[in-house]
Design a protein around this nucleic acid. Structure first.
Lengths: 232, 232
DNA sequence: TATCAATCGGATTGCCCTATCCACTTTTAG
DNA sequence: CTAAAAGTGGATAGGGCAATCCGATTGATA
């Protein structure tokens, strides 16, 4: 082993053995592919099969499915947060705002697993949640800029972006590969409804806390969640 | 038994024994409640428990889950088709159109199971599909009227109503009881985006066949469908 | 009231899931 | 080269699911 254990009773190793590291990366690559195709509902066994490793190897490296999910989607979440930063760099506030929605929605459409991640909260996956909050704060600035420019309706609320994610997840999930571009039309409709001036008042936004609770409740990888399942 | 079997070898009875009929109604009432709360993913066992009958009793009366679903949602589908008829009776085409969308969306929000049913095709449940098609034809007339009145954007397509159902199902499914009115805001945004004059062009609608295939694919009660499931 | 088909429900089958166990193999340090 | 730590994967536990089986029970009829 590398550091820390010349003593027979030395502490746990900090880095993996070369073969283990290789397998770890194989697993992540496989999970990326499988989750993207099948959503977070994909089984650990199917990931192991795709990776060409035993089931035990998966669980040794990622003791729970949630940890695997966190490892797999770390970079997607980075890209998600980056998209906000890019949008904030756009000199045209409205163009940036629209571009951000389109980018985020496209990310959902391109990866069923990520669509699930965006509408689910993983309390134990700190890194993911940190990124999510980071993105959220950027979004608030993005919204304020677009309103200040007079292009975004005044009653637009940050939570509306969450609602779009949920709606888009519904479309992406329902259409899948059968109608892979249907989401574009839905998103375009949403964007037109956001543009100022508003055509009419809207019902109140849900409470911030309520939405958060909803995201906790809707864990597609948790059997306690009442979600679509089995039959014949 | 009632008719047809004074002969020991007589054919199958046409009507149920009184206790069986009572149980049948208990099962349907229980399923109505459980599916409404938990969606079509609810287990047959949970319905039996709620009904206070044995599992075997359920399956004797409804040999597959799909048959139970068809029996439970027959009247919801009737109401759904009726809503179109009511909308067509409205002297104001736009008011009727908007009212229909709101009614249908409210039905989804009030019943998770029905939200699933509206975005899922059950080829073997003929009665359900007949009603769905009946409603669909009415919707086309509703759309044409609203366009003719100049209130609905010209590029609105009947398939857009299916997309709304899918988007709304996503919102309802994700928010659930945590934010039970969130769907209203989403639906209001959609409606404003439908109003003429259009604020811009839209990406093309998905093919009719593609959407139909998507609805077949997304059966929340079929384990072959890649959907959110288990973990810890 | 006696009979018997219809009905009942708990136990069971068979499948898929997450997660753990354990006997065997590989890497790595000395 | 050797030995122990680290790693491996198949078998297995334990639970949920739809659906079936079968011995006990009950309703309808005479």
């Amino acid at each position: 082993m590398t550091p820390g254990s010349r003593h027979p009773h030395g502490p746990a190793p900090q880095s993996l053995r070369s073969d283990a590291e290789r397998n770890r990366e194989r697993i992540i690559a496989a999970a990326r592919k499988v989750f993207a195709r099948d959503g977070l509902g994909a089984s650990m066994a199917s990931v192991a099969r795709e990776a060409g490793v035993g089931i035990a190897t998966m669980f040794r490296r990622f003791p729970t499915k949630e940890e695997l999910v966190a490892a797999v989607f770390a970079d997607r979440m980075d890209a998600y947060a980056d998209a906000v930063a890019v949008a904030l760099d756009d000199p045209d506030p409205w163009h940036g705002f629209v571009g951000y929605i389109e980018t985020a929605s496209a990310m959902q459409a391109a990866d069923q697993g990520f669509a699930d991640v965006l509408t689910t909260s993983f309390p134990t996956a700190k890194a993911l949640e940190v990124r999510r909050n980071e993105a959220y704060e950027g979004m608030v600035r993005l919204i304020d800029r677009a309103k200040a420019a007079g292009r975004l309706r005044e009653d637009f609320d940050p939570s509306d972006l969450v609602l779009i994610h949920m709606a888009n997840a519904g479309v992406v999930n329902a259409t899948g590969e059968a109608a892979p571009d249907a989401w574009r039309r839905v998103v375009a409709l949403f964007i037109q409804s956001f543009e100022a001036p508003a055509r009419g008042p809207l019902p109140a936004s849900p409470e911030h806390d309520a939405l958060h609770r909803a995201m906790l409740r809707t864990n597609p990888a948790d059997p306690t969640t009442p979600e679509p399942d089995t039959t014949g």
